[in-house]
């Protein structure tokens, strides 16, 4: 008999206070409590974290890599969004 699938979770860890939670991997667990415990055992055995988030993988909506050209085009073409686009005379000094 095939082994039934268990829910997949994504694990995010805050390594130090002041830093954001960062994706570090995934694991299988039947519920959130077990996912948190497994994340502790698997991803923080050597003091890697102060805080853990676990999220069911199915709850994540991702952008489609094949449409990344269209998706991120607006960021490419608007150079006036960058400070270097604007001219400030040297005499004015650092701005």
């Amino acid at each position: 008999m095939a082994t039934p699938n268990t829910t997949l979770w994504e694990v995010f860890i805050r390594s130090r206070n002041g830093l954001a939670h960062k994706h570090c991997g995934s694991l299988h667990a039947s519920d959130a409590t077990m996912a948190l415990q497994a994340a502790r055992d698997i991803y923080t055995r050597r003091g890697e974290g102060l805080s853990i988030w676990v999220v069911p993988s199915s709850a994540i909506t991702a952008s489609d890599p094949s449409e990344k050209g269209m998706m991120f085009e607006p960021a490419e073409s608007k150079i006036y969004r960058h400070p270097t686009f604007y001219e400030v005379p040297e005499e004015v000094g650092h701005m």
């Binding site: 997949l8 994504e10 994706h23 991997g25 995934s26 993988s57 199915s58 994540i60 991702a62």
Partner: peptide, 8 residues
Amino acid sequence: MYTQALNT
């Protein structure tokens, strides 16, 4: 992201 659902 480590999910298989998007790949199938």
